[in-house]
Structure formats: C-alpha cells, structure tokens
C-alpha cells in the first residue's frame, strides 16, 4: 500500500517536473526584453517550484530544480547549468524557509518576490565565480528591479492556478 502511494508521488513529481520544463522552454523562446541584461528571464517555472515547495516538501522542490538545471545544461551548455543550479537552489531554499515560517508575515506575492531576488543573487554569485571577478554585480540593480516585477507576476499566476494545481495533485494522490 505504501509502495503504491510512493509510485503515485513519483508520478506526480514527474508531471510537475515536466510542467516546470515546459515553462522554462517557453520563456527561452521569447526574445530578450529591451533594457534588461539578456538572459534575464521571468522565471515562470518558479510557479511549479513554489507549489511543490508549499505542498510536497523541500526534497521534492529541490528535485524539480535539479531537473530544470540539467535541462538547461543539455540545451544551453555547462555555464547555463551552473547558473540555473546556483539560482534555483538558493531560491528554493528561500521560498521553503519563508513558507515554513510559523504564522508567516508573507503572502504568496512576498515569497515569490523574495525567491526571485534570491534566484538572481545565486546567479550573480555563480557568474562571479565563473568569470573570476565581482564586476558582474554591475547587473545587480537591474536584476533586482526585474525580480520584484517578475516575482509579483509569478506569485499572482500561482494564486490563480492554485485550485487547478491542487486538483492535479489530488488526482494522483487519492
């Protein structure tokens, strides 16, 4: 019986992982937005990661992050993998921590904005290590402003999609 539940959980995680990949793929085919460093993306797949962190757990959310990074690595090369991994891990830990706070002062929007900012910070740190210079932090102000905007958008979308995503989970776990 326990085994059956485990299989169902694995299947659900597979579907969530696929959804995260589909969203990552989607935002890669958009052209770069003017005024932003190219490579700055809205982070729609964070919708799935956040839902997973909130309803399943840290391990599951991290698994999705790793799948996303591997996808980035396979399609866009090693530095894309490192960037995706560094940003993803930091943002997943941030959202999980904020979601688990007792009587959290943050709503979905706040958690989303904080995790978007954490994602960018992780990427800047990775870029600093990759290039060997802290000068990449020149990107910081633009990225931070962009994180606030995209965090608000993904947070709102998650709020809207929540019933549908919960329904999907129930389909697998019931």
């Amino acid at each position: 019986m326990a085994r059956k539940t485990n299989n169902r959980k694995t299947a659900l995680l597979g579907v969530l992982g696929a959804q995260a990949l589909a969203l990552s793929f989607l935002e890669n085919i958009f052209p770069a937005l003017p005024g932003l460093p190219p490579g700055a993306k809205p982070g729609f797949s964070n919708i799935v990661t956040m839902f997973t962190a909130a309803t399943a757990g840290l391990g599951e959310a991290l698994a999705i992050t790793v799948i996303k990074s591997v996808f980035a690595g396979v399609t866009r090369g090693l530095s894309a993998f490192i960037m995706s991994f560094a940003g993803g891990i930091l943002s997943t830990f941030t959202m999980f921590f904020l979601l688990r706070l007792k009587s959290s002062p943050f709503g979905i929007a706040g958690v989303s904005v904080a995790s978007a900012a954490a994602h960018n910070l992780g990427q800047l740190l990775a870029a600093a290590v990759l290039t060997g210079t802290s000068s990449v932090f020149g990107y910081a102000p633009v990225l931070l402003l962009f994180a606030v905007a995209t965090g608000l958008v993904t947070g709102t979308v998650l709020k809207v999609l929540m019933p549908a995503l919960r329904k999907q989970s129930r389909y697998f776990l019931k």
């Binding site: 959290s104 002062p105 943050f106 709503g107 979905i108 929007a109 706040g110 904005v113 904080a114 900012a117 931070l144 402003l145 994180a147 606030v148 608000l152 947070g155 709102t156 709020k159």
Partner: peptide, 15 residues
C-alpha cells in the same frame, strides 16, 4: 493569501 503586510514592506525595501 496573495498579499500580506510584510509583502509590501519587502517590496518597498527592495525598490
């Protein structure tokens, strides 16, 4: 909830 008080504070600080 989508927005709580601390969210606005966080966004204001980041801006």
């Amino acid at each position: 909830t989508l927005f709580k008080k601390a969210d606005f504070l966080l966004i204001a600080v980041l801006c």
